[in-house]
């Protein structure tokens, strides 16, 4: 199991995965709007999405878990 964390504080602009999806390393999972930039958040490893913890419009802080992946 791997937790994907937000690299910086910002607001979730787009969620690109759903629970059950298979993701590859490097795949874009989220777009976070921060500092007026659209910042993609990529999976650092592959797996199956177990849980998506935030939705569009939510504020996330640096270090918050946004997605949980299963191997």
């Amino acid at each position: 199991m791997a937790e994907i964390i937000s690299p910086m504080a910002g607001v979730v602009a787009e969620v690109k995965v759903n629970p059950g999806d298979k993701v590859e390393p490097g795949q874009e999972l989220f777009i976070i709007e921060s500092m007026k930039m659209m910042i993609p958040l990529e999976a650092d490893k592959g797996g199956v999405v177990k849980e998506v913890k935030v939705g569009v419009g939510d504020f996330v802080n640096e270090g918050d878990v946004v997605v949980v992946l299963e191997d």
């Binding site: 921060s34 930039m37 659209m38």
Partner: peptide, 10 residues
């Protein structure tokens, strides 16, 4: 590097 954290300085 705009690809990572928008290139913002931390």
């Amino acid at each position: 590097q705009p690809k990572v954290k928008g290139g913002v300085l931390f």
